[in-house]
Design a binder for these strands. Structure first.
Ligand code: MN
Ligand code: MN
Ligand code: ZN
Ligand code: ZN
Lengths: 144, 144
DNA sequence: TTGTTAATGATAATGATTATCATTATAAGT
DNA sequence: ACTTATAATGATAATCATTATCATTAACAA
């Protein structure tokens, strides 16, 4: 997605297109990883458009709300963020030993099965399901 | 599981059977809910066997390590715990509006599908998978 | 009963995140 | 381009959950 596309998303939500905001999105575009607020802050320090840590937190939150970013939790005490990938999303393998996180894009049949689950759950519990996250925990190839 | 069964688990792991430890397990047995450390601490205050907050944290961690408790994260900034249910485990529906959490036990075909996924993932990424967690997010019946 | 050592409790320290508030930048309207 | 209303920013204080410290106590093997 181009820089201009992100601006359209922000405007659609009546959110101002500021330079720190766009710089944060660019950090994620240039580093396709799971970044914590502090890590984003560090990346910005290296570039020309810096931003205060509070601004980083506020924008990670905001960009998540409008769907540009995704928030993930790997159990290390801090939130991590990644750019939202469409149309195919992915899930995570977390190593219990070294903390390494590996993305895996959906396995054959997975999205169909999840749809079936969502239908069942909506029926049984009256939940209108909007999203889901799957985490597998274990030992990575290097640690086992 | 009886009180005596838990003691066997602790002894197997060379962990002392202390009164605060057992009191914490009993809190979970008597309240089959997702409790935060602070909530466990509050429950203990009401009973006769109290415990310091540090002891609560230490034991929640320890009891999780030996498999008596499960740690779950609903995105509200603190960890929650629940007693491990065997042999059938369950997953969670989280309401994005009111934060309510609903357990759902596995839907028909779910454990088979998860096994298939685990096999695939082990093959592709060399991960030895030990556990998994699935979260669905949306709006609960009261909030939609 | 005793000795070794893990466990506990009070509390300080840490780390992540949020709140505050004066200042600045964005965007809409002229 | 110039004004203006207000959202956004940045420095930093405050908060909240969790962990570390350390002197004291309790568990339990011998
Ligand atoms: Mn990812
Ligand atoms: Mn549960
Ligand atoms: Zn590893
Ligand atoms: Zn709700």
């Amino acid at each position: 997605m181009s820089n201009h596309e992100w601006e359209k998303v922000l405007k659609k939500h009546n959110i101002k297109v500021t330079s720190s905001r766009m710089a944060i999105v660019e950090v994620f575009e240039e580093n396709r990883k799971h970044l914590s607020a502090e890590e984003v802050h560090e990346y910005l320090k290296k570039g020309d458009q810096k931003a205060g840590i509070a601004t980083v937190y506020r924008n990670l939150d905001l960009l998540t709300k409008v769907g540009i970013l995704h928030r993930v939790n790997f159990g290390d005490g801090k939130d991590h963020f990644e750019i939202t990938q469409r149309p195919i999303h992915h899930h995570h393998l977390v190593c219990n030993k070294c903390g390494r996180v590996v993305d895996y894009s959906e396995i054959m049949g997975e999205s169909e099965f999840v749809s079936y689950l969502e239908k069942e759950l909506t029926q049984r519990y009256g939940f209108k399901i909007e999203s889901h996250q799957i985490y597998f925990y274990g030992l990575c190839d290097k640690c086992r």
